[in-house]
């Protein structure tokens, strides 16, 4: 029973990342009808937003510290981040410690900007071209973005720790009445899960309860009619692209303490997120979220040692296997609408 719960918990954080990326992919596909192979790159850029913010905050200048000496006995030069000068050392240190959560604020405007520029500058010209062309151009864009990041940040993973307060683990089992230390779970992963649930809820609420969201939903159903009513649907769809980019970026920024960001993390997640979208049903937002969590948990169950012993290698292929079965038996996916991209 304990191991059962552990596997579910382990699946949740990966599932959250899948769900967030797949949500953005589905938003873009549902609104603009574009298959965005560069979405993984957006996830990666979000992660590097956190890295960049960390570097910006620790920008420092050197001062003489009279209380310390170096090995020659001269007064030592100490690096002091500028942020200490502005907020004082204590608050400054706290801010640096909280880089990753703060990067949310930094990543939102950056990612919306990236998304809007991407849509207006490139993808807009591909609405009328075949899906294959869209796949190809976004695939090319993904390569370019990832290589740019590699040129600036190098090829090695960059460790980005969570705040000190969240480094420990949470004894989850005690809550459920098990023995202590049987079900423990890192705080940050728990936070990541809660964070992703909040983001998903926010996106759904935005679409469901605001006028803007209502217009977007109407546009998803029938773009032409909405346009005929005198609404500039293109501009709203552009903003939705920005929003989808921001969702992917936030998923990436908060994921950094779990997995140190490197330049090809986007590609690694992209393939799986596509599978998630397909399993959930192309164009269905709840389907994408559901499939994200389900596949995350499924993957984590498949990597239990008992399962691997019975079916070796299943942990590597289970997601693809599910995708193949779903595509062949129920092409519209778990929650896809009838007739949407079913052939």
């Amino acid at each position: 029973m304990e191991s059962f719960i552990i596997q579910i918990l382990n699946g949740l954080d990966k599932g959250s990342a899948y769900a967030l990326i797949a949500l953005g992919l589905t938003l873009i596909f549902g609104t603009l009808g574009v298959v965005n192979f560069a979405h993984g790159a957006l996830f990666m850029i979000g992660a590097f937003c956190a890295v960049t913010l960390g570097r910006l905050l620790t920008l420092s200048h050197e001062v003489l510290d009279p209380s310390r000496t170096d090995f020659l006995g001269n007064p030592a030069m100490v690096k002091v981040p500028y942020i200490y000068d502005i907020f004082g050392p204590e608050l400054g240190a706290t801010i640096i410690d909280w880089t990753v959560p703060l990067s949310i604020l930094f990543a939102i405007p950056v990612m919306i900007l990236v998304g809007v520029v991407m849509e207006r500058g490139l993808i807009r010209h591909f609405y009328k071209r075949p899906h294959a062309d869209q796949i190809l151009v976004t695939f090319g864009l993904a390569i370019v973005l990832q290589e740019i990041i590699k040129a600036f940040y190098g090829a090695n993973p960059i460790p980005t720790p969570a705040p000190q307060a969240f480094t420990g683990s949470f004894d989850f089992g005690v809550l459920l009445g098990f023995d202590p230390f049987t079900v423990i779970y890192p705080y940050w992963r728990l936070i990541y899960f809660v964070f992703s649930v909040v983001i998903i809820a926010a996106v759904f609420a935005f679409l469901q309860f605001t006028t803007f969201g209502m217009v977007v939903r109407a546009g998803m159903a029938d773009r032409e009619t909405v346009g005929l009513l005198g609404i500039n649907i293109d501009r709203r769809f552009t903003l939705m692209f920005g929003l989808a980019a921001a969702v992917a970026g936030l998923a990436g920024a908060m994921y950094t303490p779990i997995n140190s960001p490197n330049y090809h993390m986007g590609m690694d997640f992209l393939v799986l997120s596509f599978v998630v979208v397909v399993v959930g049903g192309m164009g269905s937002l709840p389907g994408a979220v559901l499939a994200g969590f389900l596949l995350g948990i499924l993957q984590s169950f498949a990597s239990m040692s008992a399962v691997i012993e019975t079916i070796p290698g299943i942990n590597q292929v289970v997601i693809y296997l599910v995708a193949i079965i779903i595509l062949l038996t129920r092409p519209r996916g778990l929650m896809g609408r009838k007739g949407v991209m079913e052939d």
Binding site: V35, H131, I135, V271, F274, V275, V278, M282, P312, G313, Q316, V317, Y320, L321, A323, I324, L327, L328, P331, M341, D343
Partner: peptide
């Protein structure tokens, strides 16, 4: 399947072969 689904299916099969060949 055709279109994007075909692309994803072939991608899934190739990734599966890679993962299996590796492990």
């Amino acid at each position: 399947r055709s279109g994007i689904y075909f692309s994803i299916l072939t991608l899934a099969f190739a990734q599966m072969s890679y993962a299996l060949a590796y492990s």
